[in-house]
Amino acid sequence: MTRLHARQQGFSLVEIMITLALGLLISGAIVQVLVSNSLTERLNRSIASTQESGRFIITRLRNELIMAGRYDPLSPTLNRDLDPVAEGAYVMNHPIVLPGDFAAFADVGSSQGAAGSNDRVAVAMVASSDCRGLKLGYGVNEEFYVVNEYFVEGTQLKCRGFDGRVLRGQKVAVGHDNHASVTLVDEVQSFQVLYGYTNNVLTGDNSARPVSYVTADQLAAIIANNGQVVAIRLAVLLKGDGEVSINNTPRFKLLNETAINPTEPRLFKQFETTITLRNVKNFMRSRKV
């Protein structure tokens, strides 16, 4: 009787070690892909947040600041509790509000931040509500003299609105809320403003083209010399959501300020725009040289 001996074979030690090594390589590659996807997702989220915030705030500021100096004394919706001719002359000659323009509210106005800190811009116009959407006691369909001020507090770009007649002491505040500010956008690293001014004597014509762009602290002397602001140039540096690892973080130069070199592991993006104040330009064009 023949005995059959079945020969049993298994994996050798070398084969097991090769299999483990290949498994480790594949696992490492999968982990690397997952980590890379996570970093990419965070970067994309940060880019999306800064783009969305930047587009929003630039559009918002453009739509509101472009109306500086607007005053139509013939408008059927204008509140006429005061003489519209006299008030219109004042508004059109003071489209950019400066600190001290209103004795009882001396802090309201456009100002230059010290040593590269954030600037502040304040504009006047006739509108149906202030920058917060408040009517300040006026009728639903009424327009009134509005002063809107934009500034940074902490890392938030905010605005607060005023009834211009209250600021000038011509009216007692109605619907007053202590001029509380509202936040327009978060994660603002820097907010800078320059003002393009014209002077019919310097330009030699009534083109109302900007002669130069200056900071807010130079405006009082320019306006006293028959100049007027006809354009506003804005620059905003925003910080994205969440930490992002970025090699060689770029430097950002906002308008006339010293370049900023962020040190945080975040994505930063700069937005700029120049706004022509068409109401003021038309007013300056009507002046004689």
Rank of each mutant, 00 (worst) to 15 (best):
G109C: 11
V185G: 02
C131V: 05
Q156L: 14
G227N: 00
L157F: 11
E143H: 09
R233E: 12
Y213I: 06
V146M: 02
V108M: 12
V214I: 12
I223V: 05
S245V: 15
A224M: 04
L194Q: 11
T198N: 02
R165I: 00
L234D: 05
S110N: 06
D130E: 02
N225Y: 02
T203A: 14
N225A: 10
N118F: 04
V146E: 02
N247A: 13
D107E: 14
V140L: 07
V146H: 02
E142I: 05
V140T: 09
A124D: 01
A221T: 03
R160S: 08
F191C: 12
K158H: 02
T215M: 09
V172T: 12
Q228I: 05
G175H: 02
N178Y: 10
R251E: 13
T215R: 09
G154K: 04
G109P: 05
Q170P: 01
N200Y: 09
L136M: 13
R168C: 01
C131T: 04
V140Y: 03
H179K: 14
G227V: 09
D205S: 12
C131A: 08
E243Y: 14
A106S: 15
D107T: 15
L167I: 08
V185T: 03
V201W: 11
D186V: 00
S111D: 06
D177K: 09
Q192G: 00
D205M: 07
N206H: 12
K171L: 13
N247S: 10
P250H: 08
F151D: 01
R165Y: 01
Y138C: 00
V244K: 13
D119A: 06
A104Y: 06
V185L: 03
G175I: 05
N178H: 13
V146D: 01
V147P: 02
N225H: 05
D130I: 00
H179A: 15
K239I: 08
Y197T: 01
R165H: 00
G137A: 07
V244G: 09
V229K: 00
S190H: 10
V126C: 05
R233W: 08
V185R: 03
S207K: 07
V193P: 01
A220Y: 12
A180T: 07
D177S: 09
S129D: 13
H179V: 14
V166Y: 02
I223F: 06
Q156D: 13
L157I: 04
E243P: 11
R132M: 15
L136H: 13
N206T: 11
E153C: 08
F105P: 13
Y145M: 04
A106I: 15
K158R: 12
G242M: 11
S181T: 04
S212V: 02
S110C: 04
